[in-house]
């Protein structure tokens, strides 16, 4: 992994948010950036490169990358349904959404479809409890989920893949 000059400029911009010598603070935003550039997950190579960019020890990157739930340490499917299952969403039927996805795609939480197109994950409260049931889809939220909406999201995921 190696960034183009253009990307390196973006890295420098991130580091410029902090006082001199406090560049380690850029680690979280930088890991988001590296993950995006690396196809949605953090390989150990990508993490080592991050350490190099910030001039910190690789273990400092591993420690952080494994702590936060948004960093993927394994390659991920093309479309990831991250359905919230915490109390408030449960009250509004999140279990039914998970069941319906199973019915349609045959995957349970933690599983990926055989064609690698869809991954289903259950996650904890995403701060959208009033618009439940909901899921995170990439950088966006999908709220007030219904069976019809799931159908549409599955169709969308399939078109995106073609």
């Amino acid at each position: 992994m190696k960034f183009s000059d253009d990307k390196l400029k973006q890295v420098d911009e991130m580091i410029s948010h902090y006082p001199e010598g406090k560049h380690k603070s850029a680690l979280l935003p930088l890991l988001h950036f590296v993950q995006k550039e690396n196809g949605g997950w953090l390989s150990s190579e990508a993490m080592d490169y991050t350490a190099e960019l910030l001039k910190i020890a690789p273990i400092e990157v591993y420690e952080v990358a494994t702590f936060y739930s948004m960093y993927n340490l394994q390659p991920v499917g093309k479309t990831i349904f991250e359905v919230c299952q915490t109390g408030p969403c449960m009250l509004r039927g999140s279990d039914g959404i998970v069941d319906y996805i199973y019915e349609k795609l045959g995957i349970k939480p933690g599983q990926t479809t055989a064609d690698g197109l869809f991954t289903l994950k259950t996650v904890e409260c995403l701060g959208a409890c009033g618009y439940a049931p909901m899921m995170q889809l990439g950088p966006d939220y999908r709220e007030h989920l219904t069976k019809e909406k799931i159908d549409a999201l599955i169709a969308e995921g399939k078109t995106k893949a073609n």
Binding site: K22, H32, E60, E63, V64, F67, Y68, S69
Partner: peptide
Amino acid sequence: QPGAGAYICGEETALIESLEGKR
């Protein structure tokens, strides 16, 4: 500054640690 998925960072000193690029 973005976090990366950790409720605990709502605790002010955890938030500060996270802002320093740590767990």
